[in-house]
């Protein structure tokens, strides 16, 4: 079902494995990873549905001759983003068991021992199946469409106080641990450059990447637009007691909410 890891056969459909590196990501590596309708939208949106087909640059490449050419090592060091194809994932691997140890030392104080969130810090676990309900719970497990984003975000931004300081193995392990806590991967699952892109996240198919607007229509009516008697006040912020003090020094609301 949706909450199990993707079958290994998905990876076999492209000749270059996910986790490949290079100067580009490419549509062929997305087969079995990105829903075809989404991939189509991504390609169309990038060029505005082909609007750029006849684009002519104003100048030739390197016309102004300013700056230097980065070395391959510099490019590799700076380029950290990992798209759904898994491109740019480094060597290394990790497991939930290793992740648990790292997590309890570096992450649990904010995100809670079970990823349940603490003191308003984000909850990382749970909510799967809740999105269409009146109380949706958006978490890594319930909401995120691609596991590569989990790897990428932990790598670039966590732990909060020391971002982008974890080693690849640690990031793989934390990814495995968080996915496992969410019941998405098994505890035996090994996270690496090949396996992470293949994880089928529960909410993968629920994003519409094509902006459907305008979806809300109003008209610039000037006279008798609604019946006066139909106007009722449905809510009034003055009764809510949620507003900090708005004059004097900034109100941190330490003594009230």
């Amino acid at each position: 079902g949706d909450t199990s890891s993707a079958p290994a056969s998905d990876a076999a459909t492209s000749s270059v494995p996910p986790g490949h590196a290079g100067d580009h990501n490419s549509v062929k590596y997305y087969k079995g990873i990105v829903p075809a309708k989404d991939l189509k939208v991504w390609r169309e949106e990038g060029t505005g549905n082909g609007k750029l087909a006849h684009y002519k640059p104003a100048t030739k490449v390197d016309y102004y001759k300013i700056g230097t050419t980065p070395t391959p090592a510099q490019i590799a060091g700076w380029t950290i983003a990992v798209p759904p194809s898994g491109e740019n994932l480094p060597a290394g691997s990790g497991t939930a068991a290793k992740g648990e140890a790292i997590y309890s030392t570096n992450c649990a104080m904010c995100h809670g021992g079970f990823g349940e969130g603490k003191n308003n810090y984000p909850q990382l676990v749970g909510g799967i199946g809740s999105l269409g309900t009146p109380s949706p719970e958006k978490t890594v497990g319930s909401y995120w469409p691609y596991a590569t984003t989990v790897w990428d975000y932990i790598n670039r931004a966590m732990p909060f106080y020391a971002p982008h300081t974890l080693k690849p193995d640690e990031v793989y392990s934390l990814t495995a641990y968080i996915l496992n806590m969410n019941g998405i991967t098994k505890s035996s699952w090994v996270a690496d450059a090949k396996s992470v892109p293949l994880v089928k996240m529960p909410n993968r198919n629920s994003f519409n990447w094509k902006d459907p607007r305008p979806v809300t229509h109003n008209s610039a009516c000037m006279k008798n637009c609604v019946s006066p008697s139909s106007i009722k006040i449905t809510s009034n912020a003055a009764t809510m007691n949620l507003t900090p003090r708005l004059t004097g020094p900034v109100d941190h609301m330490k003594n009230g909410k």
Partner: peptide, 16 residues
């Protein structure tokens, strides 16, 4: 290609 880029990152975490 995988190994080249990956090892570049692993071998030189602080590029020149």
């Amino acid at each position: 290609a995988t190994m080249i880029a990956a090892s570049a990152r692993a071998a030189s975490p602080a590029p020149t």
